[in-house]
Design a protein around this nucleic acid. Sequence first.
DNA 1: AGAATAGTGTCTGTAAGACAATATGTA
DNA 2: TACATATTGTCTTACAGACACTATTCT
Lengths: 333, 333
Amino acid sequence: MKMRENKNEDSRREPLRDANGLTEEEFLAGYDAGDYERPSIATDMVIFTVAGEKEENYRKLPKQTLRVLLIRRAGHPYLGRWALPGGFVRPNETADQAAARELFEETGVDRVYLEQLHTFSDVGRDPRTWVVSCSYMALIDSRGLQVQAGDDADRAAWFELSYRMNSESRERLDEGGMLHVRRYELKLTAESPEADSNDFYADSAKNAAGKLELTATVEHRITRTSRASIEEYVVADRGDLAFDHAKIIGMAIERLRGRVEENDLALHLMPELFTLTELQQAYEAILDRELLKAAFRRKAEPLVEKTDQYTENAGHRPSRLYRRSREDWGDYR
Amino acid sequence: MKMRENKNEDSRREPLRDANGLTEEEFLAGYDAGDYERPSIATDMVIFTVAGEKEENYRKLPKQTLRVLLIRRAGHPYLGRWALPGGFVRPNETADQAAARELFEETGVDRVYLEQLHTFSDVGRDPRTWVVSCSYMALIDSRGLQVQAGDDADRAAWFELSYRMNSESRERLDEGGMLHVRRYELKLTAESPEADSNDFYADSAKNAAGKLELTATVEHRITRTSRASIEEYVVADRGDLAFDHAKIIGMAIERLRGRVEENDLALHLMPELFTLTELQQAYEAILDRELLKAAFRRKAEPLVEKTDQYTENAGHRPSRLYRRSREDWGDYR
DNA sequence: AGAATAGTGTCTGTAAGACAATATGTA
DNA sequence: TACATATTGTCTTACAGACACTATTCT
């Protein structure tokens, strides 16, 4: 069996020399990164959770909604607008590590589900300088969690999320291709806290119920010609969201919806013990549609593990509690 | 109806001032990017195609195989090793544009299927300096295509690709979690051209048939604890591939396999007109397993459009030619 | 004629959709 | 006891897997 060194050199006797006659060692010793312009690289975190509101009727279960964590910017640019938490990647860490670090600073949780989403590099997306953003999606159980505003923010809050297609159009192009545009309304709603004395940036938008409400419009455009297929997201109206973050959130929720039915992703939104109804509500909150109970339980069955515990004092029949399956972890991914 | 300006300012009378009393305009005018260390950002392209080899028997159809384009590095680091084509993103373009540009420079094709894969940022992945790589997957029809080595390469070649799971292990961790490791062998094979006079770097590996053969090992590691689920790819043995490109190729082929059955991705590997058998062979090359003819044709039917043309002189019954469907573009994505 | 592929028909098993029926703790 | 949810049963439909059969051109 042939062994191979997993290092950046090999076992040849003579070291390889390049066109200038340098060995790799000599080349690296003399390497100058030069002064080409370089971007900053940042991470933006789309942190999802599900949470239920208080229910007036003691018998009824609270309705679970999908939520995303936003911070309000305390400095320019987009001062006073709401943004995804995030920060710059440091030279001695990976983007994954930076994302995990940001997540921990903001929420105090680590070791949760974290997935790289997409890297955004639109020219001018940050008015300060060239910033490329590597975005991540995190799924967490937010029960008993206190969020923190970082140093670039004066507030952090969970926003209930609604992302619905407004309109859809298919248009035939001259060259025989087709342009397919799906227009989504992204609506983010949060409880508006009492204005405290430091709160010198007025909240930009409150709805009739006194809730803070942000609305943005994102277009998902697919151009198809005989050979190509180009997909792009465009912020048609960023509303009171900073940067291109409406687009990042839109992409995140589409990704989440696309994936959640084919693996056990949604289980990361659950606490240690949960009922199947809670799990189903999480799916429904993500997909924004109702699922059939019997079919859902059939599909969830291999992903979860029975416990002998039950809910109590619910005003109706108790429900068995489950946990994530540790045995039969089937065909995730 | 409320109108909103889609610009980076809003309609308030007084411009917002930050903690230093600056308006956004003043802030940006005085903004200094500072001298924090910044990375270079590069794109790496995994360019896939399918192509058939000559068949000895005039009756038999040529077997189609999945191929990927590699270049041989003409400079340090990894001098003489094979690498994915790619290059640096320039300040006034997006990573998408840089990827399209690189693809065009290398192959002369544009307007093809191009999808962002993943951004790699491992510390030390490039021995020269801090380089973050934003990788892309392209699917092209390579018939009648001549590939070009860029200025950082002395050769470019299509490599037949095999990516097979070698071993799989599930291991229970102390904390109650589980580590799931899938080990893949990535084998890349190309016809070895006659060594020309400029070819002063010996080809590192030729197999018995005189073909150029590169072998690498990639591990796909999934760590699952009660709350977390961390997925990572590790190059266990990079063989004669440069940088972390074995991992990028592995991720690309896994992505391709995962997606190809749920949409019309594979059609981008086909020429304008193709037979259903050719299309099926492309699927089989990607998935590395045989498909049933009848079932395949049922599934392909909504993705393609009949033409009145047929293959000729095939040594057997002619086959109807199809093109990508332009009408009923179903539920791609 | 025979080789090899093209194209279609149909049986079967599995899983999802739909809906109904039964079970049970709490106010 | 009634309410609201918990849990299970089963009929129907859709579709993928499997395999067999027929059709057609070229040498």
